[in-house]
Every structure is written in structure tokens, then in C-alpha cells.
Design a protein around this nucleic acid. Sequence first.
DNA 1: CACACAATGTTACCATTGGCAACATTGAAA
DNA 2: TTTCAATGTTGCCAATGGTAACATTGTGTG
Lengths: 208, 208
Amino acid sequence: MAKAGPDKSTTKGGSYHHGALREALVDKALEILASDGVDNISLRSVAKAVGVSHTSTYRHFANKDGLLTAVATAGFLDLAAEIEEAYGTAATLQEQRLETAVAYCRFACANPNLYKLMFSSFLKDKDGEEALNNAMNETFRRCEQLGRQDAEARGAGAEQQGLAGVAAWVVVHGAASLAIEGILEKAASGNVERDRLIRRVLQSLYEI
Amino acid sequence: MAKAGPDKSTTKGGSYHHGALREALVDKALEILASDGVDNISLRSVAKAVGVSHTSTYRHFANKDGLLTAVATAGFLDLAAEIEEAYGTAATLQEQRLETAVAYCRFACANPNLYKLMFSSFLKDKDGEEALNNAMNETFRRCEQLGRQDAEARGAGAEQQGLAGVAAWVVVHGAASLAIEGILEKAASGNVERDRLIRRVLQSLYEI
DNA sequence: CACACAATGTTACCATTGGCAACATTGAAA
DNA sequence: TTTCAATGTTGCCAATGGTAACATTGTGTG
């Protein structure tokens, strides 16, 4: 994820300057987040895993929240990409709505700790972090648009379309959150795989 | 909230034994959580506010998570009570569905930090904490039931009813989460008060 | 009533963590 | 070549969660 820089850490054995430390920190933080959970992420653990002193992080992030915000931003960009891919492979509006929502939930289930971090970072620096806001908008724009279009196709007015756009957020976030917690399985009767279960719940919401 | 014990702290000036420390700690934690946010809750700050050494908390909770779990449990019980009240004052099934959902969102908006803590405690000791599980079930039972009943009224089969029950969770949690973050307002056109906005979004979800 | 004891609370004490300040190293511009 | 801004390091500090040993108190039992 987000591997773009030259990664000079491999060019020379003990080079004092890392070269792409910021990205390396974000990547390692993503790893640690996925494996050890959000409670076990510390500036020191991330820095140590990268092989750098923990205070070097302050050359790239204002504080720990800054690092976590960058991690969340990377997550939103990844999620947005997966949504767009699902959108691209669907044909009809109904399919697009369902498949983007499924992709959203699939991402959340595949990266539960990251997803929770992403959503918990929502309001922290709400108006302060430009990159985070952009990534968020990028992520939800498609969901909202599909919700609006669906309302429009049903002949709803402008206000109803706006509400339907928000409702699309509501559905995907709610479904993803419950899916992560394993509540869908708990509520299901038989042994249904999660992916299929998510589809059914979403369909039940979209078709009624 | 949860004020039931004798509160012996007022009976004698400097009594060594508090008498109802556990409840006092939970209550103070609720206060601090509401005013200072979840990041500013520490065992020490809570204990200090109660006027007790921070290690005394370990006589009543296994660790910090134990205290937070108790706080979350208290939150779920409060929420369940408000849902039941809303349920009691509604007449038709549709009204019950809407009003319980509105009550749910109103609680989340009135106690945003608590609500986030409640939901973040979901999976921590999922199978370990009996009280938390009971409070959770108490909270969501009504929502799920109303979702099922609505599906039944529409002539859906047993499986569809189960999915509709889960879908009810999805909707209320999603709506509450976005309402807390102020996303509903952001997506709305005019200057609509939040309570009214939540109603409309929920109606748009329930009626389509 | 005396006394043992379990329950509850307190005082050291420790490792970890986020963060600051001062210093070290390096690449690049002048 | 020299200078300097960028980047990374060590030393340090306060706050925090947690453990261990000790202090206090209510309570049941002889």
C-alpha cells in the first residue's frame, strides 16, 4: 500500500537519512494496526519497527494523531479505489448501488482495525486536515451519488434526492460496522458466509 | 445516572472506606467522558475526581478496560430505557419504528462520546462480559423486533424477517454515527435542525 | 466482647508512552 | 567549499496503567 518512493533505506547500510520515512512510517503503522490493533500502536513501536528513533516521527507529523490521521487518509484512498473498481464493473444502477456497498463492507471486514480508525478520525481535526477531508469526500461521493440517482429514478424531488444520498452513507456505514462486529452472522439463521450475508442484508434494505 | 447506592462518602468526613466506590467511579467516568472526551479519561483522573487513589479502582475493575466496559454497559441500559419509552408512546408499527430510531439517534447525539465508547467496546471482550452483552441485547431487541414485524406485515418470509431485523440495526447505528459527526447537516440543503433532519433521513429509508 | 480475616483503600515503585529540547548528520544551494 | 535547512538522535520529563506490599475497617465467630 502506498509504496511509491525510492526507499533509500536499502541503498546504503547505515544511512543517517532514511529518504522516505514518512511513507515508511505510515506503511508500518498500517501493518501494526492490522496485526496488533489500534490500542497497540505507539509512536515508539512504529518507529522501532521502521528502525528509527521515535522522535524522528515529529519531523513528519505534528504528533501521534497526525500519524494516525495519515494512516486513516491512506485507508480512505484505498477504500475509494475499491469502490470505484466495483462501480466500474457493474452495469445497471441497481447493480452499481449494491456492488459498491458490498465492496465497502468487504473492505471494512478485511481491515477492521483500519476501518475503525478511519471512522474514529472523522471528527478529530474535522476542519483542519485537508488531505483527510479530500480522501473522505472521494470515498463517499460515489455512494451518495448512487443514492441520489436511485431516488431520482424513482421520481423523487431534489430534497428527497439529497436525503437518499445521505441514506446511502447510513446504510453502508451501518452495515460495515455491524459486519465487522460479527453481528450479521449472529443474527443469521444458518451457516451463511459473511459476504453472501452482507449482500442479502443490503438487498433487503434496497429493495423494500 | 445509576445513582442507587447509599453513597456513604457523605456520611462521614474522611471515612477510609467509600462504600459505593464502584458506582461513584462509573458515574464520574461518565461525567469526564461527556465533558473531556474518551482520550482524556484515565484511571487516575477518574479516581482523583472521586477523591480516591487510582489503584483503588483495581478492587472493583480488573483494569481500565473493565471500568470502560462498565461505563459502556451503563450507557446501553440508559439507551435501552429511552428506546422503550419511545416505543411506549407510539401507536402504530410504523410510528414505533420511526420513534424508536429517532430516540436512538437522539441519545447518540446527546452523548456522542459515550455512544462511541459503547460501540467501540462491542468487540473487546465480546464473549467475556456478561453484563455488557445483556445490556446490548436489551438495547437492540426492540429495534430488531420492529424490523422483523415490519417485514412480516409486508408478507415477507422467515428469512427475510431475520434480515429485516438486522437491517434495523444497520439503519439506526448508521444514522446515529453520521448524525454524531454532523454529516447529516453537511449534506442537507437548508438550515434544518438536526432532530428534524434525522427524522427525514429515517423516513426516506423506511418508506422507499 | 475479643479476635481473626476478608474486603477495601493507600503508598511506594516500575515500564511504557507522548512529547520537548538540544545536539548530530547530511544533502544541496550559494 | 561553505553554509544552512532538513532530517535524525540522544537525553530528559510528566502522565499513565499496572503490580506489590502495607494500612484500615467492617464483620462474623469463638
